[in-house]
Amino acid sequence: MTNKKMFVIAGLIFILGAGQALAQESFAGKWWRMPDVAVQMKLTKQEQEKLDELYRVNRLNLIDQRARMEKQQLALEESMETEPLNETDVFKKFNKVEKVRASLSEERFRYYLGVRKILGAERFEQLQQARKNFWKAKHSRTGSDEGTASHRR
């Protein structure tokens, strides 16, 4: 039942146009709250609560960073549309966008690191393996090889 549901979610994510979110660094949702996963990973209540807190703080920061990024993107777009074009200003805006991108990427990685710290090396590897297996199963069901364009991106 859980697996079936997971495939439905994965399918919906593919329909949305990108399958890479679950396949790469990002872990979507509170997977540790799924009873089967919690048992298989031998997660304690305390660890689940730590993961809850990590998730909460990380997602709040990511949402803030996303908003910052959207503002900087808008500023860059406006600068690009200005006539006559001010190349210095465009690069200034572009550098700001890049700066936000770096902090966004760092925040995303901080979550990944937080999960690793809570789970420990062995269970973190177990989680990675479970994810690989999930994608293998997914691709074998859809008849495509591992490493299709959507996964490779």
Partner: peptide, 18 residues
């Protein structure tokens, strides 16, 4: 929980893209 996962996946897709 599944709905939250789906919603979070959308956010993470956007974050990954950015």
């Amino acid at each position: 929980l599944y709905q939250d996962m789906l919603s979070d996946a959308r956010l993470m897709i956007e974050i990954d893209r950015m």
